[in-house]
Design a protein around this nucleic acid. Structure first.
Length: 907
RNA sequence: GCUCGAAUGGUGGAAUCGGUAGACACGAAGGACUUAAAAUCCUUUGGCUAUUGCAGCUGUGCGGGUUCAAGUCCCGCUUCGAGUACCA
């Protein structure tokens, strides 16, 4: 995953994933593969713009500076990136194709029957021939009109109608509005009611916004997860986010009225236990069903809920609601049940109306208890006096109730819940009471941002409706503005641009003054969100300089999709959903050859900071060492980890660190000041940031690479602790000592001994297997063992060191390169072939068997390695040591385990 | 609440199919070399009891179970982490 180049530069945690993929890339190259290992920058984003607002510095300048700093830092670590393929999302040559894809989405609709996107022209001809008859397509709302009605529509009406079907569409939707940031945010950019960036409050607001019909792809996004090699937990996160739910829609008539409305339920089996209905406050039905007697009360309630922000609703989950005065007729019982309004029903999910079955739904139960509504249990033997019975298991009863004349001929009594759901679905279908329906939690993505630093939309407005500028005129470049803030009239920052109008005839951007709404029209003022540019960048790497297409057919067919993608789990419900959606759309267009963009995904863990503390005695400038601090009243204070070594404070450095500590006094233990420590986020304010540049300067790039990998499994989050780095650094020095003795270069051409070959081949085998499993930390252990063995055997023979150098190359490329030249090669180590290991060398002559009795190991026995199982058994039983364990007992059976264990079971 | 994952020495972590738990590394203790320091090397290092009996017992969050054999499998808990949350 390419990085967002932030102003803080890289800390030691950022390169982790890049080191892991670099090792894999180098390994695959050594095995003879053509590897595409690229790098680029996700260069549009809020921080550069916020910085611009504060300082006036143009975000483009900030961004370039940050990129240069990133590049400098990355280069120090020695990555084998193919920099010729670098992409930057803010480069017009790049966002040309972001805009292009958006236009294609605008000009497409989603056909549910064939489960793919199609050109909007096909939809128009369908309308011309038969209106909406026989149409099964993704849409914002179900429309129904005839061919004649379509033809009678004005141009504007037609455009409005098409909006309902386009994959990129302008929609009037409830959005997450962040007043502080002055922009809307996507669902994944809001966490617990506040913005992910900055933590500012977010409110719900209705706005006309560009949206992407991601929901149309919900089923494919779900199914595709079965075809990719990702961790189960990440797939599970995406499944939850997509939230497929199979259920039934049922129509309820309103008593004494022509009105009817539809509810969605996954528990069709509970139709006989409905005791009231609930509408979402935002539902249009509320006004229609409210009786005059209740009107004042209902309106007061709506008013109150509107004022509550998302955050307040989360924080305070009191049961609230109001009766509308109307009743609905249950189509299964004929009963009239009251219709209520409550904010526990969401307008955005299902139909915005529910049937309440308090006996079997905890939320309905709480509501019923609060307003004293009846509760009818429907499962044999369940107790609903204290809480609802939500489990989907048991035998149905009371459906219908005994002794009541049946209203319909459906009887669910005696069925299991599963059977009852199926039976009800069947009944609903046959009697046209509703339909079987699959709902998804996944919503369409809101695609407009009221910001400056993002891709401009290639869109102009005519008669209030959006039109795409000609595809051949792309890219539409981001204009200059005087200010990066919203305008006085509340328009986005692009409202400040003076040259931001589109001349259709000339096909170019012209001055706003020329707008005449005949040939010159105003351009869109919103920009695209961060995920626009980061959704298809991997395709661009395959063919980065192509100005005719996002990617050529040849390049795409050659490289296909990403074999190995490395990045954090924090993108599970953002980038990794959008990217999959975007790629599936391009797949439908025939642009991408693979339906899933990322075949294998590895989630690298976060590197946390390891903070150090000093303890100041209250009201003094005296600091007390960790293990003596309990004798005083102390305040723990963060101290810069760079002046602490193995938790021992450099007292002098501390006095010089900040002026207020110049005269600090210390209470030491064993002559040292020991600091406390804690694992926290790596951040400036905790003084625990470790810069990779400093590590490279002190130990070299290879030590940094090795240590980052040695720290633990890639997937795991772990604190950075510079202390352990000496271990891997020592390993490199020992290896160096094999090549260069005290008298210098000492590699010989002598024939290697069997023990030396064994050591080498053990290493090659282990490293080969480990790299394939991304278990780099254990590989490095294997290197250390091998080098220790070779050192103790004083083996510095070329036949051993040469293959060793090659397998080391992915991990420590600089050192390996140096050795490779020393060994007399004028090629680079990257061109070497990966050495094969020979099992012959690994074979043992003798094997040590652990002889155990009833699972307890008692003694060891040396036997020839190729001794047959039966002979091992006999020898073990016959051995003199066995006699004392067998005394007075009989042998029940003997088990010889491949791992050289003989277990003798005795009675 | 629901879903998923994890728990192993002072620390990071090994243990691939159920087969001698603690590889490798850090830290710590002791020693060699050195005027001294750095660097390097050697020894010890889960706990307990021994240590001129060189071994024994115990031990992978807790309680059970399966098995000749469990860190690993099964059942029931505890704690921590991640995701998600009036989704009907």
């Amino acid at each position: 995953m390419f990085p967002y180049p932030s102003g803080a530069g890289l800390h030691v945690g950022h390169p982790l994933g890049y080191i892991a993929s670099d090792i894999y890339a180098r390994y695959k190259r050594l095995r003879g593969f053509n590897v595409l290992h690229p790098m680029g920058y996700d260069a549009y984003g809020l921080p550069a713009e916020q910085y611009a607002i504060q300082t006036g510095q143009h975000p483009a300048i900030t961004t370039v500076n940050n990129i240069n700093r990133y590049r400098e830092q990355l280069d120090k670590i020695g990555f084998s990136f193919d920099w010729d393929r670098e992409v930057r999302t803010c480069d017009p040559k790049y966002y040309h194709w972001t805009q292009w894809a958006f236009q294609r989405m605008f000009n497409s609709f989603y056909c549910n029957t064939c489960q793919r996107a199609k050109p909007i022209g096909q939809l128009i001809s369908h309308f011309e021939k038969q209106g909406t008859e026989g149409l099964d397509v993704a849409c914002s709302e179900e429309l129904s009109f005839t061919a004649e009605a379509w033809k009678a529509m004005s141009e504007r009406e037609k455009q409005e109608t098409l909006m309902n079907y386009r994959i990129a569409y302008l929609g009037e939707t409830m959005v997450n509005w962040c007043p502080k940031l002055g922009t809307v945010l996507a669902n994944d950019e809001v966490i617990e009611g506040v913005s992910a960036r900055g933590g500012y409050p977010v409110v719900q607001k209705k706005m006309r916004q560009w949206c992407l019909r991601v929901s149309a792809y919900a089923q494919r996004l779900l199914d595709g997860l079965d075809t990719v090699d990702w961790t189960d937990s990440l797939k599970e996160t995406q499944r939850n986010w997509i939230g497929r739910s199979e259920g039934t829609e049922v129509r309820f008539k309103v008593k004494d009225s022509d009105l009817e409305f539809t509810i969605f339920t996954t528990r069709a089996d509970t139709m006989f236990g409905v005791t009231f209905m609930v509408l979402a406050p935002e539902s249009e039905l509320v006004a229609q069903v409210t009786t005059d007697a209740q009107r004042a009360e209902v309106e007061a309630y709506l008013d109150r809920t509107k004022k509550r922000t998302e955050r307040e609703r989360i924080a305070d989950r009191k049961v609230t609601g109001v009766f509308t005065g109307s009743y609905a007729i249950n189509p299964f019982t004929g009963d009239a049940v009251p219709i209520w309004v409550s904010d526990y029903v969401l307008a955005g999910y299902g139909t915005g109306a529910i049937m309440a079955v308090p006996a079997h739904d905890s939320r309905d139960y709480a509501f019923a208890k609060h307003f004293n509504l009846p509760i009818v249990p429907l499962v044999e033997g369940c107790d609903v006096s204290e809480e609802s019975f939500d489990a989907k298991e048991g035998i149905v009863c009371n459906s219908p109730k005994a002794g009541v004349t049946p209203y319909c001929d459906l009887n669910l009594n005696g069925l299991t819940i599963k059977e009852a759901i199926a039976a009800t679905k069947k009944y609903v279908k046959e009697h046209h009471l509703g339909r079987v329906k699959v709902n998804f939690r996944l919503r369409d993505a809101i695609f407009s941002r009221q910001r400056y630093w993002g891709e401009p939309f290639p869109v102009y407005y005519k008669d209030g409706m959006p039109y795409m500028i000609d595809e051949s005129k792309l890219p539409l470049e981001l204009p200059e503005v005087a200010k990066f803030l919203p305008t006085e009239s509340g328009e986005p920052p692009l409202g400040h641009a003076t040259k931001w109008a589109w001349d259709v005839e000339k096909g170019e951007v012209v001055d706003n003054a020329l707008i005449d709404n005949r040939t010159v029209f105003p351009l869109e003022l919103n920009t695209m969100p961060g995920f626009a540019g980061s959704s298809a960048y991997y395709l661009r790497y395959m063919d980065p300089h192509n100005d005719k297409a996002l990617v050529s057919k040849e390049a795409d067919e050659y490289w296909q999709n990403v074999d190995l993608y490395v990045g954090g789990t924090e993108h599970a419900t953002g980038h990794l959903i959008y990217s999959r959606f975007w790629n599936k759309f391009l797949f439908d267009l025939g642009v991408s050859v693979k339906e899933e963009p990322f075949q294998k995904l590895i989630n690298q863990g976060m590197i946390q900071g390891r903070s150090n503390f000093v303890y100041r005695i209250k009201d003094t400038n005296t600091f007390v060492s960790l293990n003596l601090k309990d004798q005083y009243e102390v305040t723990p204070l963060h101290v810069d980890v760079n002046i602490v070594s193995n938790d021992v404070l450099d007292v002098e450095a501390f006095r010089n660190w900040r002026p207020e500590y110049k005269d600090a006094e210390f209470i030491l233990e064993d002559g040292k000041y020991i600091c406390g420590w804690a694992v926290e986020k790596m951040s400036k304010s905790m003084f625990n940031v470790v810069n990779p540049d400093v590590i490279v300067e002190n130990y070299g790039a290879d030590t940094l690479r090795l240590y980052e990998m040695f720290l633990g499994p890639i997937e795991q989050s772990k604190p950075w602790d510079t202390n352990g780095i000496d271990g891997v650094h020592r390993f490199l020095k020992k290896l160096w000592a094999l090549f260069y003795g005290k008298e210098g270069w000492q590699v010989t051409d002598a024939e290697p001994a069997p023990a030396e070959l064994k050591s080498l081949h053990k290493l090659i085998k282990k490293v080969t297997q480990d790299i394939e499993n991304f278990s780099y930390n254990t590989s490095i252990s294997a290197f250390m063992i091998c080098v220790n063995e070779l050192t103790s055997m004083k083996c510095y023979k070329k036949a051993i060191l040469e293959p060793l150098t090659v397998v080391l190359a992915p991990f420590a490329p600089h050192v390996a390169e140096e050795f490779w030249h020393t060994l007399g090669h004028d090629t680079t180590v990257c061109d070497a072939p990966w050495p094969a290991y020979n099992e012959e060398y690994l074979k043992e002559n003798t094997a040590t068997y652990a002889i155990s009795f009833n699972g307890k190991v008692r003694y060891n026995l040396e036997l020839p390695a190729d001794m047959p199982k039966e002979d091992v058994e006999k020898t073990a039983l016959a051995h003199e040591n066995s006699a004392k364990w067998l005394e007075g007992k009989s042998v029940k059976k003997v088990i010889v385990v491949p791992k050289k264990i003989v277990n003798i079971v005795i009675g």
